[in-house]
Amino acid sequence: MNRAGRSVILFESVSSALHAEKILKAGGIAHKIIPVPKHISSDCGVCIRVEGEYLEQAGRALEGKVRVLGVRQLPEAKGR
């Protein structure tokens, strides 16, 4: 899988992120809960990582259901 396109979706809280996880799971959209990368935020929470090809689908699934704070593309070189 092409790692270059990986992004993380950021949320207000862990509660929001886990609610989003349920929605993505129900929609069969591949994703992974990971700690928020330190270069993005010093927060102690979690975010959702998705491959580029699923990003748009994930965005649509979450729209109007969970508040998304932002989407950041992960740097290629660092991988995960």
Binding site: V14, S15, L18, E21, G45, V46
Partner: peptide, 18 residues
């Protein structure tokens, strides 16, 4: 501690609450 630390056990605890 649910959702405080980002590691898998913390996420598991947060999932119970979710």
């Amino acid at each position: 501690n649910p959702g405080r630390s980002g590691h898998s056990l913390s996420v598991e605890a947060a999932r119970i609450i979710s």
